[in-house]
Nucleic acid binder design. Structure first.
Lengths: 119, 119
DNA sequence: CGCGAATTCAACCAGATGGTTGACAACGGC
DNA sequence: GCCGTTGTCAACCATCTGGTTGAATTCGCG
């Protein structure tokens, strides 16, 4: 049970339909019906998808008569990017360090002249 | 569907244990046993997690005697960030535009045509 | 050669997920 | 005031997921 928010966000975006919904909402708010129209699934299924996105904090739904316009919340993206950036940077840094070590080893190993590099 | 690889990556990171594994691998490669040690689950469970991460392209496993050192691949992060950045930017851009329109509407009373958001 | 350590494979199980259909709540237009 | 539109709730179903245990595999080492 992913109670933590990052898990919910990643899980929400792990579904292609939901990612597509997010993509379309980036162009503007839309109602459930409008969102459901292009897909080959029931409106209920899309409503469920929206609930997942809402629980993840990716969208909000207001009330406008019997319609529920869906709105994309961009803030959550920051949460993800922060996480990703953190470990990407670490990994790259480590990679550069390793690269340097390998370069050193390579230059030492280069058999330009007789080297007795035993062990 | 190249979209599907994105699904795998997001799904892989939707699990707290797997995110923690990624976090630890950012500090350096590790074996399955080492990775499993801090968690209260069997080594087999961790092995499964690693398979998920590997299928998502987040880690690679080499072979070193009977050990399988696990290595973090940072490239996949780019894929995610590209996706996120794209829609975050769009949403923010739209927000700024909306803001401007609202400001206009507020200052002059002239009713404009409805902007954007066709079906 | 064979034991033991590291890891994966296989079968199984509980619970989450994504889809369906059917009923119902809320509201605007006649 | 009713009716159709919009959306959610509920029950149900198949499949996926994350965990378990137990057996198999792959090696280094004495």
């Amino acid at each position: 049970m992913p109670e933590d928010s990052l898990s919910k966000v990643f899980a929400a975006l792990a579904d292609p339909t939901r990612r597509d919904i997010v993509a379309r909402l980036a162009d503007g708010d839309a109602t459930v019906g409008e969102l459901a129209e292009p897909y080959d699934v029931s409106v209920q299924a899309v409503s469920k998808h929206l609930k997942v996105l809402e629980d993840a904090g990716l969208v909000t739904r207001s009330r406008q008569a019997q319609r529920r316009p869906v709105h994309l919340e961009a803030e959550v993206f920051d949460l993800m990017e922060k996480w990703i950036e953190r470990y990407r940077r670490k990994a790259e840094e480590r990679y550069r360090r390793l690269d340097r070590v390998l370069a050193e080893l390579a230059s030492e190993d280069t058999p330009h002249r007789d080297e007795g590099n035993a062990s």
